[in-house]
Amino acid sequence: MEYLPVVSTYAQSIDDAILLIAVLVGFWTVLTFTLFFWLIFRYRARPGQRAGYVTGEERQPKRFITIAHMLVLVCDVFIVIAAIRVWVDVKQTLPTAPETQTVRVIGQQWAWSFVHPGPDGVLDTADDIKSVDELHIEVGRPYIYELVSRDVLHDFSVPAFRLKQDAIPGRIIQGWFEATDTGSFDIQCAEMCGIGHGLMPGRLVIETPEQHAAWMARQGQAAGRALLASGRASG
């Protein structure tokens, strides 16, 4: 059963890292508590029997701690290696494929806004498409996002991508994603940003190249109509 859709190229590797941590930490947790309660029961108070005092300085009694400690450290090494591999892939690397496009993600109290490259595929040109609440992308295409905030701290969170990134006023933070399936998914703010923090949901719409081209064409027509209406009103 799938609790949360896996819709980015790196989502599974993040899930795997979390599973590895859960299994290793879970193993030691269960073992420790089992031993703990067994020792409490096994060496419970008995009439006429005094408790021994262990100073922790002798090698023989200390080995129960030392050996377990070493084994936990070995597990830590596995966790660190897994975490660094995921971190480097998700946070330290940007895609370089020629089909990569850039989108701008803007957080503000209390909405997400987006700037998409238009048909020319380049951001900050005349055909850019601006939207509120909805980010439209193509499945199978790598995207670099430029995350900015208009006011306070926000956090761009896309659970289906396993993506979370703080937006910090005054900074442009880059990251990337590549969708592996089409559909509509939640965008949330994961950083407390004021009274409307819980009321700024967005939608990520992942489309096939044909659907995305059709969406861009509709946006272009809408912009044209608005421009025409503006011209009529001012003229």
Binding site: Q108, Q109, W110, A111, S113, K130, S131, V132, D133, R150, G196, L199, M200
Partner: peptide, 18 residues
């Protein structure tokens, strides 16, 4: 309050939605 450049409107909109 749903225009890209309407900063104040975007702040107000979720309040009305509540």
């Amino acid at each position: 309050g749903r225009h890209f450049d309407d900063l104040e409107g975007l702040r107000m909109r979720p309040m009305a939605l509540s």
